[in-house]
Design a binder for these strands. Structure first.
Lengths: 159, 159
DNA sequence: GGATTATCTTTGCATAATGAACTATAACAT
DNA sequence: ATGTTATAGTTCATTATGCAAAGATAATCC
């Protein structure tokens, strides 16, 4: 009566194929999760990327480009976001005495305090949204995603 | 000796927990895949969202808000992207005779031709990037993601 | 029927993201 | 040492995205 579960996951029209369907689900889940995150962080006067940078910053300071590598984005993104975090008093820019090209992104006391107050609830919220999956299923999912991620990364490295 | 596979997937600093780690992988994979897609579509003079809208448009026309529901984004996003697709001649806006509020997004002949020439290669490219996973693993992954997606959607519906 | 309420789209503003160009500094190579 | 190449960060232009507000039209409620 039906080969699919119950409805075509939205995202592509014609005979997507299993891989495309899988990727479409990844896109859609990512989108829904981000919407939730945005909504949660809104009350904290933080955007999603702002919160992310906050998570990478340390009191001692981290080079901006190290953050951009970890966030898989371009340096030029971060300039503006860091500016807004500085305006809110959560991070500072400090020159690296070792290398005068780099500016270190330093978590302020206020930023560390903010993180402490937000992060546990935020992680809790993410976990709750995955309750439809059992612990074992989440673990299985993690392993599959991990393999996929490594495949994508290694194929990128070979130029 | 090690509870984790081999390295903490980047994305959060302190004791992420399995669910957060899994979500982080979803974000990272989505990001890498989108980068590939952007690169692929670049040669076709299309952006990722432009290509997506093209996939939802039909010759008969689809209401803009139907596309935004399927793309999980706001109506207001699409206005500009559709404008650019119109400028490229791939879609048209036509008023709906039934309901004068809606404007139908219609795929032009040129747009349909473009799609025909791009889509197979694009899908092929996506499949290839997932080669690290066996057919069975992809299927397993799809099922887990599908469950997760449905859980997220239903929890959204209950306001 | 007229008022209220809901829906569809666009507009304006703020934030974000990519890519290319540019400045400054560092590392390297002969 | 000097000239070349590489790296770190910013700036700018274009595109995208979300949210709030507004205008037009439709549906609903007495």
């Amino acid at each position: 009566m039906r080969a699919r579960h119950d409805q075509t996951p939205l995202g592509f029209e014609s005979s997507p194929g299993l891989e495309v369907e899988t990727y479409t689900l990844i896109r859609q889940i990512n989108s829904l999760m981000e919407t939730h995150n945005r909504y949660d962080l809104r009350r904290e006067d933080l955007t999603v990327p702002q919160f992310q940078i906050l998570n990478y910053a340390t009191p001692e300071g981290v080079p901006l480009s190290e953050i951009s590598v970890r966030m898989l984005c371009d340096n030029s993104n971060l300039t503006g976001i860091v500016d807004r975090l500085i305006a809110k008093g959560y991070v500072e820019r400090r020159p690296d005495p070792q290398d005068r090209r780099v500016s270190l992104i330093c978590l302020t006391l206020s930023g560390a305090e903010k993180l402490r107050s937000i992060r546990p609830r935020h992680h809790e919220s993410i976990s709750q949204r995955m309750q439809k999956l059992s612990k074992h299923e989440v673990s299985q999912l993690r392993n599959l995603l991990h393999t996929l991620f490594e495949g994508l990364q290694s194929s990128d490295e070979e130029k």
